[in-house]
C-alpha cells in the first residue's frame, strides 16, 4: 500500500534540486567582487535612516485575520460540497446557516470599517 502522496515526495526532491542546480551553476560562472557600497542596503543610493522596523499598521493584521477565519470556514465547507449529492435536503439549510454566520462576520468587519484601507 503506497500513499497517493508518494509522487509528491519524489517531486519535492527534484523541485529542490532545480534551485540548487541553478544557484550552484551561477555561483561557478558569476563574478564575485563585493565591496561595502554594493553590500549596503538599497535605498536609492542613500544609507537607510533609522531601523528597518518602522511601525506597521495593524490593518495588515486585520486582513490576515479575515483570511484565517474564511479559510477555516472553507475547509469545513469542502466536505459538505463533496458529499452534497448524497446528503438529504436539510444539508442545504445547515450549510446556509453556516454561510450566513460567515457572512455575518464579513458584514461586521465591513460595518466596523475594519476592511477600509485608510
Amino acid at each position: 500500500m503506497l500513499s497517493e502522496f508518494a509522487f509528491v515526495g519524489v517531486l519535492i526532491v527534484f523541485a529542490s534540486l532545480l534551485p540548487i542546480a541553478g544557484l550552484g551553476f551561477a555561483w561557478l560562472v558569476r563574478p564575485k567582487k563585493p565591496n561595502p557600497i554594493k553590500k549596503s542596503t538599497y535605498e536609492c543610493g542613500l544609507e537607510t535612516i533609522g531601523g528597518t522596523w518602522v511601525q506597521f499598521r495593524a490593518q495588515y493584521y486585520i486582513f490576515a485575520l479575515m483570511f484565517v477565519v474564511f479559510d477555516v470556514e472553507a475547509v469545513f465547507l469542502l466536505p459538505w460540497a463533496v458529499a452534497y449529492d448524497q446528503l438529504p435536503a436539510y444539508a442545504l439549510i445547515e450549510a446556509v446557516i453556516f454561510i450566513a454566520i460567515l457572512a455575518l462576520a464579513l458584514v461586521y468587519a465591513w460595518r466596523k470599517d475594519a476592511l477600509r484601507w485608510s
Binding site: I97, I101, A109
Partner: peptide, 20 residues
C-alpha cells in the same frame, strides 16, 4: 459544525475590537 462558525465569528469580532 455550526458552533465552529459561531466560534470563528466570535474570535473575529473580538480580534477586530482588540487589534483596531
Amino acid at each position: 459544525f455550526e458552533v465552529i462558525s459561531v466560534l470563528l465569528l466570535a474570535a473575529l469580532v473580538g480580534a477586530i475590537i482588540l487589534a483596531r
